[in-house]
Every structure is written in C-alpha cells, then in structure tokens.
Write a protein that binds this DNA or RNA. Structure first.
Length: 464
DNA sequence: AAAGCCGCCAACCGCACACGC
DNA sequence: AGCGTGTGCGGTTGGCGGCTT
C-alpha cells in the first residue's frame, strides 16, 4: 500500500517541516519513543501522517545523525560500496554512521555519478565506459576455459584478502574485483552479523554463476535459471543460523566446462585445492596433511531437494560417520565427501556431493543447506574458515550439477521464505533481476535489489 | 537588476513485504 | 486465504538558493 491510511484524512500538512513541528516531534519521541508511527502525529499534536513523521525523524531529527558535507573518505566509501551493493542505499548507509540512505542517495544522484562519469567510469556497472562499449553485444571471452581458472583463483584470493573487521577494506576488495570485470551482487545478512564476509561470499557466488561462462554461452539457456536464497523451512535442523542457497542445475550450467579443473588458493594460510571432476560429479575440498578424514565431530546438516513442489524435499543429514538419513521417500541419493580435520576444527562444514535422479516432470535442483553450529563462540579466524570454505562448496554444488541432463527448474514451493533472483541470459552479459520487477537496462550488470536483501535478512534473522 | 537555469536536497510517492485478524 | 494495516525502501518530485546571462 503506497499511502498510509491517515494520509487520506483531510487537513494533513505536507511539505517542509516548520521548527515548531520539529520541536513537537522531537519532544514526543524523546519522551515516549515512536512506537507505532501512525499514532505519533496524534499523540505529538501534529497535522502530519505517521509516515511523514517517521521520515522526518530518520532523516533529520535523529540525534545520532552526522551533519555537514561528506568527507572524501565517505565519498570514496560510498562509491566502493555502490560498486558492491548497487542502489541499496540503506545497506550503504549502514556502513556510514550518522548518514541516512536518503542523504547518500541524493549525494550519489547529484554528485558522485557525475564524478564517476568524468573519470570515465560507468556509475551503474563501475566499469570503464570504454571497456563496456567493447563488450556491447559481444561474447564474454574467447578463451573462457583458461580464464576460468585464474578468475576463480583470483576471486577466492580476493575473498581472503578482505579484512572482515574493516568494511572499507571489504568494500575496496569488492570494488577491485568489480573493476576487474567480476560480477557481484548479493549481500547476505545473517545472525552473526558478519556482513562483509557474507557480502563477499554472495558476490562470489553470483560471480561464479554469471562470469564463468564458456564462449558461446550466451543464448544457450532455454529455460529460466534461478538462484535462490532463503532460509529453509525444514524442521529437522537444529541450527541457530540456517541459510541456504540453491544453485541452478542444468546441462548448460555455466560452470560445467570447469569440470576437471583444480583451483588453488589459501585459507587462513592453509593451502586449499579445489578440484572438480566430470566422472563422479562430486566436488570436494582437499587439504594437505589431511590426517583425520574419518572423524568429523561437528554436527552437520545436509539437504538436497528434488524441487518438485508441494514441499517434497529430499533431506539428508550426516553425523560423524557421514551416514545419510533420507528424510523423504523420494528417489534420489546424496553422498558426502567432506574429508578434513580442518573443517572439523572449524565446527563448520561445507561440502556437497549430490546425485538426484529425477524424471522430466520432476526436475531437481541442488539445495545446499549451510549450517552454522556454534557461531556465537567462534574465534574470528575460525569464522573466516567457515565462510571461506563456503563459496568453494557453493560453487562445487553448481559444478556437480552439470551432469544432470534434464531441464531443470526450482520449485517455488519447497523452500520458503525465499528470495528469487533470475539470471537473465537474454542480455549480452548475465545480469540479475528480481521477479515481477521491471527489467533494467541491458548494460546494468551489477543490479542489486534491496527487497531481496530485506527478505533475506528477514529470512535469516539478520539485524540490519 | 532581473530573468532564467541548474543543482541540491527534503519530502513525497508507490511498491513490496510482514504481520495480525 | 484474504484483507487491512504498518513499516521500510528506492525512485521521483518540487522548492529553494546560487549562479549565469
């Protein structure tokens, strides 16, 4: 509903606020708090609607607001954050204490966009304008296969470089990645408030989906591809933070051609080798000096979904001996391959190998459930390990899926609440758009939607 | 000095979503 | 399930003030 019901009433003031009105509102909220905004104007003696009062408070009267012009550091941060977050002003504002989303939005529209254009940077994609011109209507890369390896490695290393404790650094890293032509584009907020890492993680996920396209990939998708985020509605999880990501399973999976590749990177100074295979379709992580592959004590929750609607979900859970218990009667099998003492120590396990058999009428998708078991008490370095192993596994989930030959869709019914982002392959480069939303321009490759974040944040119980 | 133009920014508008009934 | 209400968000508008002609 667009307009608050009280706005239909007569005699409500609009336009600029007078000092007297400000005083009334400030005094009321200071004394009683705002509570229900719709009742604020009446209680405060204002001829305004609650919505207007709320806006005035948030954007002007709030005591913690920082006034004055933006510093150069703030401007730089906004630019960097915009490269990562797009027009998610509230998310950007959250990284700038004392600044409101409205303020930042105005600054962006009136000043920063112009500055970027003057520097030859497209304010939407944050890429060089000259580079974008070259890419219009073109193929992504003629030598995609060789490019993939370095891209993945670079991406992972960028993730590792980002300092979790410094939003600016994380933003810089993302910005750097964006400037190198990587797509990004999702932020996840979860219970641990580890937003920067989540942001990077999601950026990586999206990057994996959208960038690692073999040459000639454009146009191969004949079906809607979806990348869904959301919390699982499964009742058999005991986790406090249960986020999930569903990656598209398709024979034209953009990552399929990377099968057989090995990606090397380091995780907390531990060399990690990420290998994909074509024969078993079981992506997995391997660690040097793995001495304890059989005893994994951390509680795990693995879930695969056949995605056939009506909430029929193939769920599998694993205990320390990696036994699988299938919680549904549907056909399908899951197999775990998580062989690392490192993972054990992190109390957080990622990894997936799934083999869902389906019929044409019953298309599967991989439903990778990511579970955090002891987020409250983990030291920072261990948390890092969680997140760093996460993107690899997510990518692995996507990689392993390429073997499925059927045309695949996600069921809109099996996981709720959920966030849908549709990878639109009709453009020269992939981009993401929300369902039921007007499509953005064809060059807008870093489009982000706060609604998705909002839903996701809610779904994950975030605090933003 | 006056008119026109332009940029900034506060506020409004419309939409989506959560929630309660 | 459907509806009404409340909240939050991003896009857009319009008034004001400064600058230019």
């Amino acid at each position: 509903m667009g307009r608050h019901s009280c706005c239909y009433k007569q005699k409500l003031r609009k336009g600029l606020w007078s000092p007297e009105e400000d005083e009334k509102l400030l005094r009321h909220i200071t004394k009683y708090g705002h509570g229900c905004w719709s009742s604020v104007p009446k209680q405060a003696g204002l001829q305004r609607c609650g919505k207007s009062c709320r806006l005035r408070w948030i954007n002007y009267l709030r005591p913690d607001l920082k006034r004055g012009t933006f510093s150069q550091e703030e401007e730089n941060l906004i630019i960097e954050l915009h490269a990562v977050l797009g027009n998610r002003w509230s998310q950007i504002a959250a990284q700038l204490p004392g600044r409101t989303d409205n303020e930042i939005k105005n600054l962006w529209n009136s000043c920063l966009k112009k500055k970027l254009r003057q520097r030859g940077i497209d304010p939407v994609t944050h890429r060089l304008l000259s580079e974008m011109e070259n890419n219009i209507g073109g193929q992504v890369d003629k030598d995609a296969e060789s490019k993939v390896s370095s891209v993945v490695t670079n991406e992972l290393n960028l993730l590792l470089k980002a300092d979790n404790s410094k939003p600016e650094e994380a933003a810089r890293t993302c910005s750097l990645a964006a400037s190198q032509g990587y797509e990004m584009n999702m932020i996840r907020s979860s219970n641990n408030n580890n937003n920067n890492v989540n942001m990077l993680l999601d950026r990586f996920i999206t990057s994996a989906i959208t960038n690692f396209q073999p040459s000639g990939f454009v146009g191969q998708f004949s079906h809607e591809q979806q990348l869904n985020y959301g919390s699982s509605s499964s009742s058999n999880t005991t986790s406090s933070s249960d986020s999930s990501a569903r990656l598209p399973v398709t024979d034209s999976n953009p990552l399929a051609h990377t099968a057989g590749k090995t990606f090397d990177f380091t995780c907390n100074a531990i060399p990690v080798s990420f290998t994909t295979t074509t024969t078993t379709c079981k992506p997995w992580l391997s660690f040097p000096n793995d001495t304890n592959s059989s005893s994994i004590n951390a509680s795990r929750y693995w879930e695969g979904s056949s995605g056939c609607g009506s909430g029929s979900t193939l769920c599998a859970s694993a205990t320390n001996n990696n036994n699988i218990s299938n919680s549904s009667g549907r056909s399908g099998s899951m197999e775990m391959q998580s062989t690392s003492s490192f993972l054990e120590n992190t109390m957080f396990a990622w990894g997936l190998a799934a083999d869902c058999t389906t019929s044409d009428r019953d298309p599967p998708h991989v439903h990778l459930n990511l579970m955090e078991t002891q987020s409250q008490s983990q030291p920072e370095d261990i948390k890092w390990a969680q997140y760093l192993s996460n993107p690899t596994t997510l990518m692995a989930a996507s990689l392993q899926s390429h073997q499925t030959s059927q045309t695949l869709f996600n069921s809109p019914n099996d996981v709720k609440p959920e966030t849908h982002l549709v990878i639109d392959t009709t453009c020269s480069r992939s981009m993401m758009r929300p369902r039921n939303k007007q499509q953005q321009g064809p060059l807008q490759t870093s489009v982000i939607y706060a609604k998705d974040i909002q839903r996701l944040t809610t779904a994950l119980g975030g605090h933003n």
